[in-house]
Nucleic acid binder design. Structure first.
Length: 436
RNA sequence: CGGGGCAUAGCACAGCCUGGUAGUGCGCUCGCUUUGGGAGCGAGAGGUCGCAAGUUCGAAUCUUGCUGCCCCGACCA
């Protein structure tokens, strides 16, 4: 992409409404534009990151055997009356009346909708287990939206729903998602920690929050330091292996402040770490809560009706954009993990209009494109300083700078954003690093 | 939902107290000079001062009401 043809309205100064780093940087990098409190438009740069995260989440869900569907944003109130949540949910639910005076709502989540799909089409134990997911916009009318996309009212979320014959089956579904989440966050370049979560009035022992560490996180977390040394699982797993993995990851103490019991946590003082975290996922086994209320049953092998056992598994996709920035930024701007970066390479032409510079940049640009590398080529006539600052701000992992001075000796500058390391190497060497 | 704050050019702000024809910096356009880490000089464009009433000869400025946004807390993917 040529910057001269791109739409990336960056700001040199901080907008005053943005207080925390991710919000400030997203606005400055021209990733988003606020529409109203907690509601944002995604501009090209932000949209690319959002799609990258979405893609990784999707791939890991698919690999875990979940099936992608797409449910509507607007749901009929009647479904929610069946589960009893229409009255329970309160003002966070955005309620809408259509022209025929029917009560509708903008979905804050989709348990009722997916249970309705299930009961309409699944009738036999032979069709289980089943896990359906979608990646769709949700709306929760937060009293006080804040922190940019991290606590918006409209947000993009992956939510999966599992259906099983019994608790044992549901536990396998739960463990499958647990492990898939570990893999997903690792691919996003994040160190995620599963916390035992409060299951609330539903009870049960199967609920975990996944948090990422960031100094600006909204809640305090306490964990055994060794949990950060655990290796992310790879490949496929039998149910027994899944259980062993979950047991291993949950054997270390990890809890949010409201669940933390300083006196009885059983962790030596020197091993206990207290930091702040951002919740980026939540998995939940809730059994028959919705299936019972809404009549989601299948016929068992013995001819008796079985009420299915369910769980739900969420990942805040749009929240992750902000969350990743909170975890990955410095004074100069964003430092994207490579997998989610909007572009892998920023190519800087230090002197647009100079014949040799233009030719060298065009050649380099064409070769990167031919190799399928996503590159943002700053071909504008801006000054050098501005170009460097902009690339630092938007956080592309690698910068290649081509200018008259280097060309005389046949070198370009290769900068790694994360370390800040700069090297003078030949264009061929730079190309090999990026393509290899 | 309790408490607090803000609203003036695309962005950040001054002007308001003490009413009298709208300012600064950045950004944008044009010219010249510059050119290796957000340049300099010059010339421009751009604003019904959030909205509505009121006071006044006259309101960005004073009064009242409304709306929007932000922050702290309670609450949450």
């Amino acid at each position: 992409m040529r910057l001269s043809r791109y739409f990336m309205p960056t700001l040199k100064e901080d907008p005053k409404e943005a207080q925390i780093a991710s919000h400030r940087l997203m606005l400055r990098a021209g990733m988003i534009q606020q529409s109203s409190a907690g509601i944002y438009s995604w501009l090209p740069l932000g949209n690319r990151v959002l799609k990258n995260i979405e893609r990784i989440v999707r791939e890991e869900q698919d690999r875990a055997g979940a099936l992608e569907i797409l449910m509507p944003t607007i749901q009929p109130a009647d479904l929610w009356r069946e589960s009893g949540r229409y009255d329970d949910y309160g003002k966070e639910m955005l309620r809408i009346v259509d022209r025929h005076d029917r009560d509708m709502l903008y979905g804050p989540t989709n348990e009722e909708q997916v249970t309705d799909i299930f009961r309409s089409h699944v009738n036999s134990y032979k069709d289980l287990p089943l896990n359906l997911y979608h990646i769709q916009w949700k709306f929760r009318d937060e009293v006080r939206p804040r922190f940019g996309v991290m606590r918006g009212r409209e947000f993009l979320m992956k939510d999966a729903y599992s259906f099983d014959l019994d608790y044992e089956g549901a536990k396998i579904a739960y463990n499958t998602m647990f492990v898939a989440y570990l893999k997903t966050y690792a691919r996003l370049g994040l160190q995620a920690i599963p916390l035992r979560a409060d299951t609330g009035p539903i009870g049960g022992d199967l609920s975990h929050e996944f948090i990422i560490l960031a100094d600006t996180g909204e809640s305090e977390v306490f964990y055994h330091k060794d949990i950060l040394n655990l290796k992310t699982p790879e490949g496929d797993h039998t149910p027994e292996e899944l259980q062993a993995l979950v047991d291993e990851w949950t054997s270390y103490y990890a809890a949010a402040d409201e669940m933390h019991d300083a006196d009885n946590c059983g962790v030596a003082e020197g091993d206990l770490v207290a930091r702040r975290g951002i919740e980026v996922g939540h998995i939940f086994h809730f059994g028959e809560k919705y299936s019972k209320a809404m009549g989601a049953t299948v016929m068992g092998p013995d001819g008796k009706e079985i009420t299915v056992s369910m769980g739900s598994y969420g990942i805040g996709v749009s929240r992750l954009v902000g969350g990743i920035i909170e975890a990955c930024h410095d004074e100069a701007g964003i430092v994207w993990p490579e997998e989610v970066a909007p572009f892998k390479v920023g190519l800087i032409n230090l002197k647009s209009g100079d014949e040799a510079c233009d030719a060298a940049c065009e050649d380099f640009y064409a070769k990167l494109q031919a190799a399928g590398i996503e590159v943002l080529y700053d071909d504008t006539s801006d000054r050098a300083g501005g170009k460097f600052a902009k690339m630092d701000l938007i956080g592309v992992p690698y910068q290649v700078t081509i200018g008259p001075r280097g060309l005389k000796t046949g070198v370009v500058e290769f900068k790694t954003r994360k370390s800040g390391e700069k090297e003078e190497i030949t264009p061929e060497a730079a190309l090999n690093r990026l393509v290899g």
